[in-house]
Design a protein around this nucleic acid. Sequence first.
DNA 1: GATGAATGAGGATTCATTCAT
DNA 2: AATGAATGAATCCTCATTCAT
Lengths: 212, 212, 212, 212
Amino acid sequence: MPGAPPRTSTACGDAEPGTPARILDTAESLFAAQGYAATSVRDIAAAAGLTAASLYNHFPSKEAIYRAVLARGLAPLAEMLAGLSAREPGPDATQEMIAAVMAHFAARPALARLIQHETLCGGENLRSFASEWVAPLFETASEQLARDPRSPWSAEERPLAVAAWMQLAIGHFVMAPLVEAALPVAPLSDEGIARQTLFLQKLSRLLLRPPG
Amino acid sequence: MPGAPPRTSTACGDAEPGTPARILDTAESLFAAQGYAATSVRDIAAAAGLTAASLYNHFPSKEAIYRAVLARGLAPLAEMLAGLSAREPGPDATQEMIAAVMAHFAARPALARLIQHETLCGGENLRSFASEWVAPLFETASEQLARDPRSPWSAEERPLAVAAWMQLAIGHFVMAPLVEAALPVAPLSDEGIARQTLFLQKLSRLLLRPPG
Amino acid sequence: MPGAPPRTSTACGDAEPGTPARILDTAESLFAAQGYAATSVRDIAAAAGLTAASLYNHFPSKEAIYRAVLARGLAPLAEMLAGLSAREPGPDATQEMIAAVMAHFAARPALARLIQHETLCGGENLRSFASEWVAPLFETASEQLARDPRSPWSAEERPLAVAAWMQLAIGHFVMAPLVEAALPVAPLSDEGIARQTLFLQKLSRLLLRPPG
Amino acid sequence: MPGAPPRTSTACGDAEPGTPARILDTAESLFAAQGYAATSVRDIAAAAGLTAASLYNHFPSKEAIYRAVLARGLAPLAEMLAGLSAREPGPDATQEMIAAVMAHFAARPALARLIQHETLCGGENLRSFASEWVAPLFETASEQLARDPRSPWSAEERPLAVAAWMQLAIGHFVMAPLVEAALPVAPLSDEGIARQTLFLQKLSRLLLRPPG
DNA sequence: GATGAATGAGGATTCATTCAT
DNA sequence: AATGAATGAATCCTCATTCAT
C-alpha cells in the first residue's frame, strides 16, 4: 500500500543530498537547537520528510544518528585543527588561526552549539575528539607561545591562554542569545562575527606587544 | 495513609532545608547535569526523597520547578552583579570583579551549567535576567573601561571585551570536561579555579598596561 | 483531568481481588492462551480494566508480570509436590498422587498450558522450579517404585516412568484441543478430567499387577 | 540494483535446497524454537540469507510461511500415520507403530515442538490435520485394541489409551528441557530417544500381558 | 504534606508488508 | 529473484499530571 517517492539519485551537479545526509542535516539542526533529549526521532524524521519508521532504514537508533551528526561535524573541525597544528609558527600564525576557527564555526551554525550541548551532558562522545584533536592543538599552540619572546605567559599559564581562546571562539556563538538580550548587537550576523574575529585578533596582538 | 516524616522546621543554625528547598537543590543539580528535557519529575522527586505526586504539593509543574531553580540561582548572581555595577571605578575594581564572579560560580557548581543550558535552549527564562542584570553590568563595565585611559578598546569594542570576560568566567566551568579531556589539569578543583582567577586577572592587567 | 475510580478495599468476606491480583489473573489466562510473545501489555491491561500506563504502577515490566504469574502458579504446585514427596509410601500412594495432581491442574486451567508454553520457549524461568521441586518428586517417586516389589521397572526405567506420568497429566490438559478435534470427547470437561484420572489410576494399577 | 547470487538449482544428488525450501527450513526451526508470534519475518529472512522483502517473492505472508512449514511437517507424519492405520493388526503392530512414530519425530527435531506450539495457540491450522489424519489413526488403533483379547481397556478407555501414547511420544520431545533440568538424562540424545522407545514398547507389552 | 493509583500523550523501536528498481 | 526504502500499526514503556485518600 505505502510505497515511497522514487528518489532518483540522478547525478547532476550538486544534487540535493541523499536521504541519510538529509536526516543528518535536520538532526544536526534539531540537536543543536534543543539538545539530544529534547529532540524526538519523529521530529527529525518529519523535518527530513520521512516517517520515523523509515528513518530506521538508515540509522539503527537515535543514538547512532546523534553520533553520526557529531562525527560528521567534528571531522572537518579536526582536520582544520590538524592543519593549524602543522603550521610553522610564523608571526601572524595566531592571527590566521583565530580567523580560521571563527570562519569554520561561522560556516556551520550548529557546530559550536552541538559541542557545547555535548560538553554539558556527559560528553562521552567528545572525549576522543578532545584527546585526539584538541590536545595536539593545545600543545602546538602552547609551544608556539613558548617560542614567542613577546609572550607574557608562564609555562603554567600557556594552556590556560589557549583554552581561553577556544572558549572565546565557541562562546561567541553559544552565548549569542544571552549577549543579544543584554546588548544591542547581533553576534551571529556576518558583521557580528567579523567584529568578534577582529576583536580576538586585536586581543592577541595586544597581549604580545612588548611591555611599556 | 502513610504520610511523610514530620519535617519540623525548628529554626536552628543551619538546619537541613525544608522540603521545597530540598526539591530545588536536587532539581538544580539534575537540571545542571542533564538539562531540562533529560530530567524527569520522578527523578527529581526520588532524589529529594519524595514521590512525584508529593512534589506537586510544592510546585505546580516541572516548568515551575525549573523557573524557581533558575530564579534562585540567578538572584544572588544578580545581586552581586548589581553590587559590582554600583562600585566606584577604583583602580583594581576590575581585579575584584573578576575574583568576585569566579568565587560566586565556584561556590555554586550548578549555576554556570544551568545558565549555559538555558542559553542553549531558547533561553526565554534568561532574557529578563539578561536585560535587567547583565545589561547594566555591561554598561557599567564598559563605562569603566571608557574612563580608564589605559584601555585599548574603542567604544565599539568595549562591550565585546566585557562579554569576553563573562564568557571566560562561565566557560571555565562549563568547558571543564572538554578541557580536562585535552589537558592534564583539573579545572574545577580549588586549585584550578584559583589558577583561572589569577590568569584572568593577569590578562586584564596585561591589557591595561601602557603600550610599549 | 484523569482520575481513577476509587477502588475502596472495603474488607468484605471474599472481596474481589486487588488490582495486582486482577492483573495477574488476566495476564495468566492470556499468557496461557497465547503465550508470552503474542500477549500485549495493552491486552492484559484492558482485560484487567486498566490502561497500559496504569499497569506499570503495579508491575515494572511485562517480563515481571510474566514471572509473577509463573511464580504464583508454580508455588502451590511446588507445595503440593513437596507434600507428595513427603508421603510415606503406602500401597495406594500412587493412586492418590495421580488424583491430587490431576485435581490441581483441573482447578487451575491455565497452569498446565503456562508450563508447557514456558517449556517450549527456553524455559529459563522454569529451570529452578524443575530442579527444586520436580527433581525431588522424581526421586521420591522413583524410590517408591524401587521399593514396590510389584514394580516391573529397572532402575534405569523408573525415572522414565515418573516422567511419563507427568507428561500424561500435563498432556491431558495441553493436548486437549488436538484430542478434541480428533475424538468425540471433551477432555477439559469435569467428566473428561475424571475419566482421565481414573484411566491413569487404572494404568498404574495394571502396571503393578503381578505378571501372569 | 544488486541482485542476489544466482542460486543455480543444478539438480545434483542432495544439492543445497532451493530458496523456498531454505526459507521453510529456517522458518521451521525458528517457529519451533520460539513460536509463531515471537518469530519475525526479518529473522527468518536473515537466517535464510535473504532480506525480508525478498522473502515475499516466495511466500505471500508470514501466515503463509507458517502454514507451509506446518503442512510440510505434517504431510510425512500423516503419510506415516496412514500407513500405520492400514497395517493388519499383527501381534507386534503396536511395537512397530511406537518405534515408527518415535523415529519419525527423532528425525525431525522441530516437528513435535511445532505441533505443540500450534496446539497451545488456537491450533486452527491443526484441526484439519487432526480430523483427517489423527482421527483415523485413533480409530484404527482403538479397533486393534478392541480386537486384542489381552487388552485391558474398555471401549470408553481405548481412545484414552491411544491418546496417552501420542502424548508420551510428543511429550518426550517437547518436555525434554524440563526433564533435563530435573533429571541427569539427555532425552534428546540418540540414546535418550532409544531408551524412551524401548520404554514405551515395554509399557505397551506390560499392559497387554495376561493378568496374574 | 504525602501517597498510590490512574491516565492521555508521547517516547523509541519493531512489525509485516509494499513497491520501484 | 533480490533489494533498499517506505510506511501504518503496533510494540513496550516513560512522561507530566491529577485526585481520592
